[in-house]
Design a protein around this nucleic acid. Sequence first.
DNA 1: CTGTTAGCGCTTTCAT
DNA 2: ATGAAAGCGCTAACAG
Lengths: 342, 342
Amino acid sequence: MSGKRATLADVARLSGMSITAASMILNGRPDTRLSQDAHDRVNAAAQALGYRPNVAARGLRTDKTLTIGFISDLVATTRFASGLIKGALEAAEAAGHVVLLLETGGDPQREAEAIAAVLDRQVDGIIFATMRARELFVPELPSATAVVMLNASNRLHAMSVLPDEEAGGRRAVQLLIERGHRDGIALIGQNDEVERDKFRSVTVARRVAGIRSEMAKNDLTFMSEESIWLWEPEGGYKATRALFRRNQAPSALLCLNDRIAFGAYQALAEEGLRVPTDVSVASFDNDELAAYLRPGLTTVALPHEAMGRRAVELLLSQEAQREVLIEMPVVERESISVPSSR
Amino acid sequence: MSGKRATLADVARLSGMSITAASMILNGRPDTRLSQDAHDRVNAAAQALGYRPNVAARGLRTDKTLTIGFISDLVATTRFASGLIKGALEAAEAAGHVVLLLETGGDPQREAEAIAAVLDRQVDGIIFATMRARELFVPELPSATAVVMLNASNRLHAMSVLPDEEAGGRRAVQLLIERGHRDGIALIGQNDEVERDKFRSVTVARRVAGIRSEMAKNDLTFMSEESIWLWEPEGGYKATRALFRRNQAPSALLCLNDRIAFGAYQALAEEGLRVPTDVSVASFDNDELAAYLRPGLTTVALPHEAMGRRAVELLLSQEAQREVLIEMPVVERESISVPSSR
DNA sequence: CTGTTAGCGCTTTCAT
DNA sequence: ATGAAAGCGCTAACAG
């Protein structure tokens, strides 16, 4: 509709003030005291013209663009990223900022280009997010640029925001113990590789560590540990079948994520066992899946949105933190009950 | 690392050329003929300084920011949006653009603010995306701003990119017919409201229309139509149970989306029926879910990534289109077979 | 109390 | 063949 955008000059002209005066008044600069009349005229003119400052032009002077770069390895692609982004978007909006979203697929080449692209646009700060928490390499950056790692960490650079997996792991075990499960708990999804490789997967290793520490604290050991290479439903299905083929009768399955649990549900159904009457299931992540399952899956949630939110707050506030851990809330549904005495 | 960013002036100084010359050379302006030597010196200097143009400053002069605004009602939030965004990101990157992602939650107030925010940053164009395809209201925009609607349409404004639901609906029916299903097909998820309300749901209405037209073309009618208010697993489960409680024995279920199919699978399992041996299932969307199900669900996919890609291509190319329809590919898995002769 | 002036980094006439 | 100068829209010293 409106042909051209009104500029500060237009406002000044219409109000009969200088450009400077208009600028000061519209920015509500505190010290300067221009007449009340001047204020009114300028504000009225701005209003009438529908004036909005040109952020790019302003940024040229002030070095603030009210824009933050969100660079992720696999963004949009996964349900994983969604919450992270949503949280970041919310916090950014609340702070009057806007976010530039870039995806790199984890490719160093594209990563470098993404960084260049956001830097070219003078972003106020950059968030690096990864889908599988990991140690992320960050190339040289202009020293001034604020950086926070989201679901990732970095030795040198920056602050990072991570889920509190250690506590989450402990919480999951407690969930089962509280209901009376003790010796009949099977762990589904154990994976030596992951447990050792703190580099590749900062958080998942902690999840398992939390689980083991809580078991130990209660003098418990797993009746069985089924290992799974890929944490997908298929693996959960097979691992659970294997468990029963060995004629073991667990009272509860502690699945390392919801997709595994999904597969476990299927195996249980084929086994003629009901959740939670015959066997309880606890899990992690709170995937969309968890709500769809029947009965609903009780799971320790990955707090994606909270993480995204916290990341931009951190970036904008410039508090100095190293690693901020976000609590993993438990989402109670119907998959856990008192062990049956089969 | 690097303290300050190199500017064009720095390049000029180091190369011993004027700023003008440097600008022209680096932009590869065609007509001007500066000496080969000048070219070499400028390029070398730029290289040495790691010079990158400041996009904001350039935009101030050229009115091109190589940035596009992606405004969505429910972005990040849904698996739905992910593909749209991913596709858009890819195409933008390929074209040397970058995307500003904003979410409005469908709230007109926030919608207006989002538009203002991207306009303030001089974006080259705006994509409006919705999760449930619908008619979207777009407030007045500067006439110059390019606009495309993604998974939405708008009477006045813009070009829109939509899935070809009509063809998709027909395709799904063909899938069943090809395998020999005829009189035993039940439709799960019928919803008068949606079928009538072309305004609220441009595409889903077309999906159903396509289905009905293909059935009619083959002189077929559904053995039953189960209506569902909310297209979630719960509804699919109940509708399917209801079907069997009436003692009907369909040879195939045509589910209006994958979440419904998910519920249907559960009901089928409880009924002691196997997919696809006892009853076949066909569906729509190609949700993440569809791959997890056992057996894998054959479904007519919503081509989210292709849509996102096409939207930015359209935006950037400024071809004049009204409505571009993206083909819905069928994803064959294992849920359809020849009808059993129970 | 208010306006002039000088840039931010870049592109683009227009002279030379 | 090359450069000076103006100006995109804005803010910030510095004078009046």
